Simulated assay, not measured.
Amino acid sequence: MDAGLDVNLLEGVIKKTIATVESSKRQIFEIAEHARREGHSINSELYEVRLQLADVINRVDELELNYRKARQKLVMVSRNFHDYTEDDIRVAYEEANQFQVELSIYRERENNLRRRRDDLERRLRNLHETIERAESLMTQIGVVLGYLTGDLSQVDQAIEAAKQHYLMGLKIIQAQEEERKRVAREIHDGPAQSLANVVLRTEIVEKMLQNERVLEAEMELRELKEMIRYSLSDVRQIIFDLRPMALDDLGLIPTLQKYIQTIEERTKINIDLVVFGKESQYNMDSSVKAGIFRLIQECLNNVHKHAKANFVQVKVEFTGEAVVLVVKDDGVGFKQEQQINVGSFGLLGMKERCKLLDGKMDIHSMPGEGTKVIFQIPLKV
């Protein structure tokens, strides 16, 4: 009875803790969303201020040129006042004075717009920092919730298992949260920003049409069309990164071929895919195919981000009991001892994914001699 009571008491405490943490997470999310909405509003205002500032700067340049000409004319008239009538002298003076007054007004307007622009940019930077801090806090809270919402009916077994595997579990939850944050950021920075820009520019087109600026409106609509096309491409890329549906429909090798072709077009890196054996001879689990695809995907991402390579060779060999993967590039490489202390989340993710697939991973690299990564993944996990 006492043991059961203790478990129930522990369960109640944890449930209250979970409710508090979830409430905190919602509040942080609301803060981040409010910051995003305010950032969108500031972005719109900043766009208008920059347009106005550009017009005012052009007007200031024009007025400065006119004022210099008027001053030169006034000096010439003053020096040769015998050759000019009083009306000529008065007109020259009034013209120079008018340009001077108008120039002062526009310079003051330019200074005000510059101050407004700088203030908006500073506020926008602060909002971005707030959003980043909120996302970091939500990631940490997500890790905590991942542990708190475990199965409380087997607390003793969970504690014993946690003694042996808590680091692995923490890394998996962190990887999940980082992946969710990455997808959210890609959507926010890509399609969401593009759609917000589309809304803003459609409003500009409406104003152009109201002012009968048809040609400018047509040009703006053509740019909008291209922007929407790029946004659609970004959405498809995000969907593909989440889960390539072609893995189940076409298989591993055709999906890799399609992905490598996309990477080549995007990064201009020459990638050669070499396959030994036939995939169709082996009935691979869906999880194994997805794991192999993610390992190669992460390798190519690392090559693109860090290796500065021009050529990459990807080898896939199907043996009786395993799949051997080799990804070799001609990039800058790194010192062999850095493998132990490397802090790359991508490299850490590959090692953890390889462990989950019961596989082995080896890295060979030297400065200036490129990098070779070798995986050996069993066909049955």
Score class of each variant (00 low, 15 high):
residue 332 V to Y: 01
residue 322 A to K: 13
residue 358 D to L: 09
residue 362 D to N: 14
residue 158 A to E: 04
residue 282 Y to D: 03
residue 103 L to E: 08
residue 166 Y to A: 15
residue 342 V to D: 15
residue 73 K to C: 00
residue 222 R to S: 13
residue 320 G to H: 06
residue 161 A to N: 05
residue 67 Y to L: 14
residue 37 R to M: 12
residue 243 R to F: 13
residue 340 I to L: 10
residue 106 Y to F: 08
residue 273 L to F: 03
residue 65 L to I: 06
residue 378 P to N: 04
residue 244 P to N: 07
residue 33 E to I: 01
residue 293 F to H: 10
residue 188 H to W: 09
residue 234 D to R: 01
residue 304 H to N: 09
residue 112 N to D: 10
residue 333 G to C: 03
residue 177 E to L: 00
residue 69 K to R: 15
residue 233 S to T: 13
residue 95 E to H: 04
residue 5 L to M: 15
residue 185 R to S: 15
residue 224 L to D: 08
residue 323 V to H: 00
residue 364 H to V: 12
residue 313 Q to G: 01
residue 158 A to V: 05
residue 105 I to D: 08
residue 82 H to C: 02
residue 287 S to V: 08
residue 305 K to F: 10
residue 315 K to S: 15
residue 367 P to K: 11
residue 314 V to R: 03
residue 376 Q to G: 02
residue 145 L to G: 08
residue 361 M to D: 02
residue 38 E to I: 03
residue 144 V to E: 06
residue 339 Q to T: 12
residue 335 K to H: 06
residue 140 Q to V: 00
residue 229 R to H: 08
residue 52 Q to M: 03
residue 85 T to Y: 09
residue 158 A to Q: 06
residue 317 E to L: 10
residue 40 H to G: 07
residue 357 L to W: 01
residue 259 Y to I: 01
residue 210 Q to F: 04
